[in-house]
Amino acid sequence: MGPDGSRPEPPDNPPSSEDTQRNAGARGRPGAGHILPVNRADIPFLAALGVVASVYIVLIAGIVLAKVFYVQLPLVGEVFTNPGYRYAVVLSLVSCSITTILSVWIAVPTAYLMTRVEFPGKRIVDAMLDIPIVLPPLVIGLGLLMLFQTPPGAFVQQYVTFTYAIPGVILAQFMVACAFAVRTMMAAFAEINPRQEQVAVTLGCTRAQAFWMVVLPEARRGMIPAATIAWARAMGEFGPVLVFAGTTRMRTEVMPTTIFLELQVGNLGMAAAVAAVMLALSLIVLILMRLAGHGRMF
């Protein structure tokens, strides 16, 4: 109890701004948001909503289960023993990790500027940040290919080869993954009370110190989902990689490429095995990220 007679707020008090932030930060988690009690009369309505929602949930469960039943374990083993497949697994893991780090690294300053600074042309920049999200992936790959045909692109290629090479795989993944990371970080910064930063500068901080000491530690909560979504997008990226980096075995082959190549030769079993490995790796990363973010799985 405080000396002013104040007690910790009872739970039925209106949530404080930080509670609101926390709820908003926990968006998408079961139980997050504002749960209302259910009356008996509501049940038909809620059941109808449940039926609609369950169509999608059943489909998700269906594709996961179908994969599990279809997979032949010896073929999964081959993904790790065969040097060709193993190369794709390793390249996928390495390129996705680099892409994730790059994406978060770019997303943090970009999202901060977009949420905290007013500048000319901001609406245009905001719209541009959606281009990689709305553009068909193949078109992004084609755009990259054309960009590196231009004189500036050709100049860069004198030092680092991007087209049909591993840096191209990473760049193709990054182009899409980063846009999602930026949007996620923007939501995270928007949830941080700007007054904190203002108090910090009155206490003697420069804007940069306020960013490092006050904003960034709080934005870490948003970096985990940003990294997760960047990693997931990078892992599944196929179109831009196909067009920009090619599908050369033991060179620019990532796991989605393997699935595509195996399907082309009618080897559905092997494609399913690689898909199962992708699914398992994605689930492991998702679990690790959630553990890192909340200290618990669900």
Partner: peptide
């Protein structure tokens, strides 16, 4: 930071 003022916002805005 150089004005030597202290600010207490409405919601406290604690870090």
């Amino acid at each position: 930071g150089r004005r030597n003022v202290g600010l207490v916002p409405q919601d406290g805005a604690l870090f």
